[in-house]
Structure formats: C-alpha cells, structure tokens
Design a protein around this nucleic acid. Structure first.
Length: 296
DNA sequence: CGTTGAACCTGTTTGC
DNA sequence: TGCAAACAGGTTCAAC
C-alpha cells in the first residue's frame, strides 16, 4: 500500500506529532516482522525520538543517545527503521483508547500517548539499528526519485535491458516507487511497461523522470493515495487516488485518447496502461503463432 | 543478467 | 446464500 508519497505523508505527520517525545516503554505482540525484538525492548526505553524522516519506503525514527552503559554505539545514529509493507500503519493514539485489531507494537510515550504499529498482513519490517549497521542497510538502495539528476536517472535506466516497469519497481535502482506511481508515470510518459530500459530514447527518459517527479510531488501534496485502507499518521485518507489515470482503471476509458485501459501482469505485478497511448514493444516470438519466417 | 513463480499473511471482492 | 478463487499499495528467494 504505501509508496513514497504515502510514507512521506506518514513521516511528516509523525515529525509533527511525536518528534521530541520520549519513549517510556515498549510492548510487543506478534514479532515475526521485527529483526530483533529484544533489541527494541532493551534499547528504546528512555530514548527521545529526535526526528522522523523518510528513506525510500522506509521511515527512520532518529533516536537520542542511549543512557545505558555498555552500549558502545550509543548516540551513533541509533534509529528505528520502519517499513509499512502493504498494510502497515504507524500512528499515535491516546493510551486509553482500545487498540485496533492487528496492532503488534505499542511505544508508550512520555505525554500519555502511545505510538502504535498496526499491520494485518505483517509484510512490514521493524529494526533497531545503530550507525554502521544502519549505513550498511541503506547502501542497498538506489537514488531518491525526487532528487535524482537527469543524468543519473538516464544512466540507471538506459543501461538496463529489463522491462521499464521492473526497473521502476526495483528499489536498488530508485528508492520509493511502487506499483501505483510506476503505472501513473508510465501512462503520463506514454511508455509501455514492457519496454526495455535500453530501448528508451533520451527524450523518453527525460520525460519519464519529469513526469515521475511531478506525479510524486503532487501525490505528496494530496497526502498520498488511499485505495482501500491507507491512512496517514492522523488517521486521514489521502486524496491522490482521484487523480489516477491508469492504476486501477481497467476497462475504463483513457483520459487522453478514449481507448480502453488494459491490465496485464508485468514484472509479476498488475500493470495498467493505455494500449493506444503506450504502444507495446514488438513482441518476442515466444512460440505460439509462427508469423514471419526467419532465416534468410 | 533477467524473468517467473512462489512464499510470507490476512482481509476483501468477485464469480459461479 | 455459500464457498472458492482471485486479488491487494511490498519484498525476497529459488529455479531456470
């Protein structure tokens, strides 16, 4: 569910509502999505949440130096890394309110509230990481799509023979793009999701970066897309789903040309596109119909 | 190197 | 109405 704009929305909300608060205690339910549950219970109590930021689809809760002695990496960029997976929600709540179903982590704060993590499918991830470990973790990711230069974007995309949809979803190429914003940007750039990176012209590549950034910025302004269950840190849905041009529009007409939006599985994911505006690449032979004779 | 499919887990929607 | 299949904003891993 949460891609870059949704995670940015949650991170900004949390920065406003919980930055500066201290974690008093930690309570855990199911923990199979937590790297080292005991580390949370051991290291988080007493720490102040200094800042909440986004890194790709991750949230980084930057923590104050710990008071426990014996922890050689105290203060060394200690952070709580949170990935929302498909259905994760992280939001503060009055401690007295009942917890939603599938709430698995409660951080008691020093102002009487609790920061709660709820995640029905538990595809999310949570980890307490310090300095070197955190840095190492983050090196696996590619460029931030909002910051990437035209040159870097082009070199990352045009050097790869994979399908452009797969490249946009690959977090080691760009960090933060998911299924919705991949399809939305490809529709706007008029590029078929099965086109190869190597196949894109310089113009197309420039256009793709431009519209991707534009879509992401506008989606952030609209506080993300809520298809069925995304809620921000204030419990509010986003509005950007109203502006979707491709994603989820199978069978409806293309806003640009009126053709019928199609759905196909590309890179293992449902992909929505306009078959007219986004012409398909020449299909590989792949058995089936033997049209033209090859050999000459 | 690139693709595909399965797996992780729960809930909701769709189809017969 | 009932029940099974398909599908969901993500990631990872094995197999080819």
């Amino acid at each position: 569910m949460p891609e870059l704009p949704e995670v940015e929305t949650v991170a900004r909300g949390l920065q406003k509502s919980i930055a500066g608060r201290r974690i008093v205690s930690v309570r855990l339910g199911k923990t199979d999505f937590i790297d080292d549950p005991a580390a949370l219970e051991l290291h988080l109590p007493g720490r102040q949440i200094e800042k909440v930021e986004r890194y790709g689809k991750f949230m980084l809760l930057r923590l104050s130096p710990g008071l426990n002695s014996g922890d050689s990496e105290n203060g060394d960029g200690a952070s709580l890394l949170v990935h929302l997976g498909m259905t994760g929600q992280l939001a503060p709540s009055a401690a007295a309110l009942p917890s939603a179903k599938h709430t698995h982590v409660w951080f008691e704060l020093d102002d009487g509230r609790e920061l709660r993590y709820t995640d029905p499918r538990r595809f999310g991830r949570m980890a307490y990481l310090t300095g070197a470990h955190l840095a190492e973790e983050l090196t696996a990711f590619g460029a931030d799509p909002l910051l990437v230069s035209a040159e870097e974007f082009a070199s990352r995309v045009r050097s790869r023979n994979a399908q452009i949809k797969a490249l946009l979803l690959d977090q080691s190429v760009l960090r933060g793009v998911g299924n919705i914003y991949a399809d939305e940007s490809l529709w706007r750039a008029k590029i078929h999701p099965m086109r190869r990176g190597t196949e894109l012209s310089k113009k197309q590549t420039q256009m793709l970066r431009r519209v991707l950034q534009d879509v992401l910025r506008k989606a952030i302004l609209a506080r993300g897309s809520s298809i069925s269950d995304f809620l921000d840190a204030d419990g509010e849905p986003g509005e950007y789903q109203r502006h979707h041009r491709a994603y989820g529009r199978e069978g409806k007409r293309c806003y640009r040309c009126g053709a019928t939006i199609r759905r196909a599985i590309v890179a293992g994911r449902s992909s929505y596109f306009c078959p007219t505006c986004q012409p398909a690449p020449r299909t590989r032979k792949k058995g089936k119909r033997r049209r033209q004779a090859r050999n000459g």
